[in-house]
Design a protein around this nucleic acid. Structure first.
Lengths: 231, 231
DNA sequence: GCCCCTATTGAGCAAGTGTCCAACAGCAAC
DNA sequence: GTTGCTGTTGGACACTTGCTCAATAGGGGC
């Protein structure tokens, strides 16, 4: 393969790894798969990457962070705390979220076995919860929300959402995306003493719908249609 | 090793497999581990078991079903629907549930990749949800609960519980077992229009606390202290 | 044009996996 | 005691995994 400067090669490796991981999951990705995806040899991967654990952890972080930043961006341009919450739910349930949520499932399951991945998963999960906690605190301070324990409420809303999406992604169960949004919205309204319906509706479509979550960052357009339970 | 009649040997293999799986997780269990656990040779396992996949799927079903039946038993002897719900929460959060919950995590993550395990996981998950749906319907018919959509409420309660326990088991996060019980109880009270506090309290200790969930069914007392996040 | 640095190769290692199978051994029937 | 069925053994096979390393080759600096 053509000789490349280290920085570009590193980016290529990340892209290839992300593509394979999104297609096969964290647990089923091997060095050889990544090398084949780039059209190079396995040895090259290890010339740049310390260990497989490290690489998988890095890929997971990249994909998850993309989701987090996408949600943050959507919330920033949403306005009031209530509209920010709506944006949170909309981005978390956007089509295409399925294959990225599968990575969360992989990370949770592997957390107790792969220390690096476990630490990353834990850290990002807390960050995700903090996004909710912050907007809730903001809503309380502006008087939009009424909530005695923003931190606990954030854990509960996030966990309800995770638990429901889990069923959508893992089993193709008899509940749909709209039901999940509506249920979590209803729960959040109760937790924050809002009028029923305040958080409902999908008018708040984020700016660039298909770009934020799962698309590989460059070069190699991936067929990420597999593992798409939320579609 | 001593010669045994096939039925007894099959039981021994199941026990050993279960012990190893609870200790190491579905993904990290090998034929050799199971053979070593019994003190016999790997070949013997395959003399009785068609494939590893089959065996793991069977072990998962056995452990999960034990949990389900344990919860059912606790609920049967609980009395009123409200007390049954309390029993449900108590058994789902009992110490020792952690390592069995890890199996659920493994199953959810692998569901989209291993058809057999996916089907089993889906089926048992729906069964688990149905337990909740049934007691809710009972409560509605006796007038104890008020609930417009028992099936949806069951999905929501179960998902909130799963999402919270997930955080306990996967990351050792800053929330505790008591908080989870109290939070889910509070949510259920809201969903069922109950007085706050109706589902709280731990007085409803089920008959045989340590037997129902994780203990191997016979012979070999296992050190199931690993992977015990809920302890 | 040459040289040297280093990106890249790909065979290969050690460890691990599920699965198979010829040989062995314990036990019941005769 | 001998025979035959079959539970049991453990080495072997073919394969995968992460990772290493001597050898190769491409391209910028002189």
């Amino acid at each position: 393969m053509a000789r490349m400067d280290p920085e570009a090669r590193r980016a290529r490796i990340s892209d290839a790894a992300r593509a394979v991981v999104l297609r096969q999951g964290l647990a089923r990705t091997t060095v050889r798969d990544i090398a084949a995806e780039m059209g190079t040899s396995p040895g090259l991967v290890h010339h740049y990457v310390g260990s497989m654990d490290e690489l998988l952890s890095e890929v997971f972080e990249a994909v998850a962070r993309e989701g987090i930043e996408g949600t943050r961006a959507a919330m920033r341009s949403a306005g009031s705390p209530a509209r920010q919450l709506r944006a949170f739910l909309a981005t978390a349930l956007r089509p295409g979220h399925g294959s990225s949520f599968q990575l969360w499932l992989d990370a949770w399951a592997e957390a107790s076995r792969r220390p690096d991945l476990g630490a990353t998963s834990r850290r990002l999960n807390i960050e995700w919860q903090q996004i909710l906690a912050e907007v809730i605190e903001e809503g309380v301070s502006t008087g939009d929300f009424s909530c005695a324990d923003p931190d606990g409420t954030a854990w509960r809303i996030m966990s309800l959402l995770d638990g429901l999406v889990l069923q959508l992604v893992a089993h193709d169960v008899a509940i749909g995306r709209d039901e999940v949004r509506s249920w979590v919205a209803g729960f959040a309204e109760h937790e924050l003493s809002l009028e029923p319906g305040t958080l409902e509706g999908t008018d708040e479509e984020p700016p660039s719908p298909s770009r934020l979550h799962v698309a590989p960052s460059s070069h190699r357009p991936t067929a990420s249609t597999k593992n798409e339970a939320v579609s």
